[in-house]
Design a protein around this nucleic acid. Structure first.
Length: 640
RNA sequence: UGGGGCGUAGCCAAGCGGUAAGGCAACGGGUUUUGGUCCCGUGAUGCGUAGGUUCGAAUCCUGCCGCCCCAGCCA
């Protein structure tokens, strides 16, 4: 990483910062303004998930924002577990979150990822006669240079301390700051700005008042500093049961903003924490821990979602009440992402997993990062999507089509093509010699000649898609039907001469056809215009496979918007997964690498499932369909 | 009936007092051995609404309307 002191976004002599290259939003404008005004000398953001669930596309937006800003302004972005509630969190989640973040930013912003050596705790230093805690990052990417040093008073640490380290790294943890946080709490009490309150949860609730009615002061609000200090110490020592007492900020019980009505800072919770074990039985609340964690890490911009906007006065109150010596982080808020036909709340996603409506957090239908990865969505496409939807403050509902467009756009130029027949219909080419096999040359990607060509075997009996044949073709149907011709991709033009039906059901089970030897791929006779080209697989050479077709999980555009007596589960689409077990693939697909994208011509992008695909028993996931003009025509015909 | 936000095309979203970017979707057309890709074209006399200021307003002011968030010892 480059030393940020050479940052090109430093203020210029006339005080103006250089115009940024990426698309601008109000947050980047603020960051740029802070840089230009010299309020900060480098940018440090953070991505602070609570390890109580898997990351989803909404988190991806936050990741792209925070890492995107770090990248744009040559700063850093710390990955931090916001783990202050032991009863909800688990290491399973910290592991998945860490892996998902790394996957999402790989090749794009890994050089901005701030982590820290395993087990390292904040450094305590003396800053102008005052104690200070600082937890410097180590840039996770290779090639980090520089040396660590305690920042000076009044100066934000910026991205300039980034020591290279051979040590194993881990994310930051808010729980690594429990000791400093406790000391800050003690300091708040000493300053007369916090007190231990003995009211029960129900009393506290009752006394908080209502939005339009002032609250009532705690009976313990004015107890002496000494008494509060003693009680706080004993809370920590484990002398009291859960919920017996709390530490509260002393602000204003009549404040119109309820978060300023003496909010709870610490609660008693005799529980084992996934990261600190049984070291603590009191745990800090979000509002107390978050801003101070930001401060300890030298965060300059703390970006969160809109629902925290009303917490901002408290965020600032805590920092100011402690009169902290270094530059304070600034919290700003943006709108969270909502997307059609899916749910985004962790509670709902957890329910889908627990009630087994999906196979797990990484079910390809889930909007989770791991689900999208397994489905075959490239990280670059997700990033592109996040860039396109922008960052603003209005409530939004982005259409999934936008995401799918980004996936197709990323895959089209680089995914190799192959032929696969998902719902096979046998075609016998009557005038093609029995036992004869031709190797047809097929291009691997018409968008990129450098990807070369391959040979595909052709013979007398082939499979085509059931959908590519109609006994009675509807208007504008260009594909095969009795007496009609189609081109077989990379092979010949064939003509349907007859059909064989199941005597029981009347269903067409085989198509009889003849081919025209003069139409072999590459030699296109004049005046021979065939309206459609269909894909095919030689029956004798086909590989059998399972293919999983994924659609939207819900039938409702906004599943969260349920009627009063309803449940979002009710709008689950029972057909969101269709498993096809009799698929026929061209031989080259036998070598497919799990997770690697391939386009099944005319159908969509697919990838071998990383979990379930086996050599000899391939399983493919459909990542996304190709756009389908015929489907649209058909749909319109159905309506008209 | 308190506080904090937000209203620009079907969906996102620029716009920062000088006469409504861009993307997605949709719809036409062209190219095409993928009904894919690509290319061309089409959409707001209008910015929630009503007034006001101004030579000039989506941008400034005032009122009104609508939607979202906040009364966890969750984050």
């Amino acid at each position: 990483m480059t030393d940020s002191n050479t940052n090109e976004h430093q203020p210029t002599p006339d005080g103006a910062a250089e115009a940024p290259a990426e698309h601008q939003d109000f947050l980047r404008e603020m960051v740029q303004g802070d840089l230009a005004a010299g309020r900060i000398s480098g940018v440090v953001t953070r991505f602070p998930p609570e390890p109580n669930g898997y990351l989803h596309i909404g988190h991806a937006k936050a990741i792209c924002l925070n890492f995107g800003i770090a990248r744009q302004f040559e700063g850093q972005c710390n990955l931090r577990m916001d783990d202050t509630n032991p009863t909800k969190e688990d290491v399973e989640y910290v592991d998945s979150i860490t892996a998902d973040v790394k996957w999402l930013i790989a090749g794009w912003a890994d050089h901005c990822l701030g982590m820290k050596p395993v087990g390292r705790l904040p450094e305590k230093s003396d800053l102008g006669g005052r104690e200070d805690y600082y937890q410097p990052p180590v840039m996770a990417a290779e090639g980090a240079t520089g040396s660590a040093s305690a920042p000076e008073a009044g100066d934000a640490p910026g991205g300039s301390e980034a020591p290279a380290s051979p040590e194993p790294l881990e994310p930051f943890y808010a729980s690594d700051y429990f000791e400093p946080l406790y000391e800050y709490a003690v300091e708040l009490v000493r300053r007369g700005k916090a007190y231990v309150c003995d009211h029960t949860p129900a009393e506290v609730d009752e006394m908080r008042g209502a939005p339009h009615r002032p609250g009532q002061e705690s009976a313990f609000r004015d107890r002496t500093v000494g008494e509060s200090l003693d009680l706080l110490e004993r809370m920590r020592a484990g002398e009291f049961p859960d919920a017996a007492r709390t530490l509260r900020a002393k602000i204003d019980m009549s404040a119109p903003n309820v978060w300023l009505r003496d909010p709870v800072l610490y609660r008693i919770r005799h529980a084992t924490h996934h990261h600190t074990g049984d070291d603590w039985c009191i745990y800090p609340m979000y509002d107390f821990a978050h801003g101070l964690s930001d401060y300890i890490e030298g965060i300059t911009h703390s970006l969160c979602t809109l629902e925290f906007e009303v917490h901002r006065p408290l965020y600032e109150w805590i920092l100011e009440a402690l009169d902290l010596p270094r530059a304070h982080p600034r919290q700003r808020e943006f709108a969270r992402l909502n997307m059609t036909y899916t749910v985004m709340s962790k509670r709902k996603l957890l329910r889908l997993v627990q009630e087994e409506h999906v196979s797990g957090w990484d079910d390809p239908r889930m909007p989770t990062v791991s689900g999208m990865r397994r489905r075959g969505y490239p990280a670059a496409a997700i990033r592109d999507f996040c860039g396109r939807i922008g960052v603003a403050k209005s409530d939004n509902m982005v259409q999934v089509q936008m995401l799918e467009h980004c996936v197709r756009e990323d895959l089209n130029p680089r995914a190799p093509r192959a032929m696969a027949v998902l719902r096979p219909l046998r075609v016998v080419i009557e005038n093609y010699p029995e036992g004869h096999v031709e190797e047809m040359e097929a291009v691997n990607n018409p968008e990129d000649a450098s990807m070369g060509t391959r040979l595909v075997p052709f013979s007398r009996v082939i499979y085509i898609e059931q959908d590519d044949f109609r006994e009675v073709p509807p208007p504008k149907y260009f594909r095969l039907s009795p007496g009609k011709e189609v081109r077989l991709r990379y092979a010949y033009v064939i003509k349907c001469t007859d059909v064989v039906k199941d005597p029981e059901t009347g269903e067409v089970v085989e198509v009889r056809a003849t081919y025209d030897p003069a139409t072999r791929s590459g030699m296109n006779p004049e005046g021979r215009k065939v309206k459609a080209t269909v894909h095919w697989v030689s029956a004798d050479h086909a590989i059998d496979a399972e293919v999983r077709l994924y659609g939207a999980l819900f039938t409702a555009e906004d599943p969260e918007d349920v009627p009063e007596d309803g449940d979002f589960i009710d709008s689950l689409d029972p057909d969101s997964l269709e498993t096809l077990t009799d698929c026929k693939l061209e031989p080259s697909l036998g070598a497919a690498v799990p997770g690697a994208a391939v386009q099944f011509e005319r159908l969509g992008y697919f990838c071998a499932d990383p979990e379930d695909s086996r050599p000899g028993a391939p399983v493919f996931n459909r990542t996304v369909t190709l756009k389908d003009a015929w489907a649209r025509i058909e749909k319109k015909q159905g309506q008209g």
